Simulated assay, not measured.
Amino acid sequence: MEWLIWIHVLSAMIGIGPTYFGHILLRKKQSSNQLQQSLALFGLLNYFPKIGGSIAVVSGVALVAATGWNFADLWILGSLVLYVMIQIVAVGMLGPVLKQLMQLLNIGDDAENDPGVATNKTALLAKANRLYNTASILGIILILFMIVKPM
């Protein structure tokens, strides 16, 4: 059972840790080229939560099944709800916004001087930051649930 705890903790750290680097990548004062590079790096960093987060969920469910805890325990239920909410925000809402932003950045240099394109880029980046902040805050709450769980 101890090995399952190690897998759970390590996959959570490896999966969640790099996602907080995304706040630096989505900063506002970047040129279009810098933002394109940041979005490409952001896409690569997303492999960590997809793989590590999935392993953390599977190992967490296995831990619940192998111990006396049950899914009705508030912290376990809350953790699962938070994880689902993070997925909805990060994958369902943030993903399409970042895709729109990348499409807007790929229009070309001519369109970059267009005030409408610049306004849309700024609005999409602001929306992406709000969604990313929401997912990050939910992630911190999830981590707190794991730390203060009943023993």
Rank of each mutant, 00 (worst) to 15 (best):
V58F: 10
V89P: 06
V58E: 12
I88N: 07
L74A: 04
V64H: 05
Q87I: 10
V81G: 05
P49F: 07
S54V: 03
Q87C: 08
V61P: 01
V61W: 00
A90W: 15
V81T: 09
A90R: 10
Y83S: 14
N46S: 14
I51H: 05
G52P: 01
G68L: 02
A90V: 12
T67A: 03
I88P: 14
I55G: 05
V61K: 03
T67S: 13
I51S: 01
F71Y: 12
L77M: 12
G53W: 12
I76F: 06
A62P: 12
G60L: 03
A66Q: 15
S54P: 00
I88H: 09
A62V: 03
I55T: 10
I86C: 09
L80W: 07
Q87S: 11
L82A: 14
D73W: 02
F48P: 03
A90E: 08
S79A: 13
I55P: 01
N70D: 11
A72D: 09
I88S: 04
W69P: 03
A65C: 11
V84R: 13
V91W: 10
V58Y: 10
V81I: 15
I55F: 06
I88L: 11
V81L: 15
T67D: 06
N70R: 04
V84C: 14
Y47C: 00
D73M: 05
V57K: 06
V91Y: 10
A56K: 10
V64A: 15
L80N: 09
I76Y: 04
V61M: 07
A90P: 14
V91P: 12
V58G: 07
F71I: 03
I86F: 11
G60S: 08
Q87T: 13
K50C: 02
A62I: 02
S59L: 09
A56M: 10
I88K: 08
W75M: 00
A65W: 07
M85L: 15
L74R: 00
L63K: 08
I55R: 10
L82N: 14
A62Q: 08
F48G: 01
L80K: 07
V57F: 11
Y47S: 00
F71T: 07
Q87Y: 12
M85Q: 12
S59R: 14
A56L: 05
I76L: 08
V64R: 11
V57G: 05
Y47A: 00
G78K: 01
P49D: 12
V84I: 15
G78H: 03
N46C: 05
I55Q: 12
G68A: 06
L74C: 01
A65V: 08
V91E: 08
G60Y: 04
M85N: 12
G68R: 03
W69Y: 09
L77S: 13
L74K: 00
V89G: 06
N70T: 08
W69T: 05
A65D: 13
L82V: 13
F71K: 09
V57L: 15
A66P: 15
I51W: 08
A62Y: 02
L82D: 12
T67Y: 00
I51G: 01
V81F: 14
A56T: 13
W69C: 01
N70K: 03
L63S: 11
L74N: 00
S54R: 02
N70S: 12
I86T: 13
I88C: 06
L80F: 14
K50T: 11
N70L: 01
A65F: 08
N46A: 13
I88Q: 07
S59A: 15
V61S: 04
F48K: 06
V91K: 07
Y83L: 13
M85H: 11
A56D: 08
G68S: 04
V81N: 04
V58C: 06
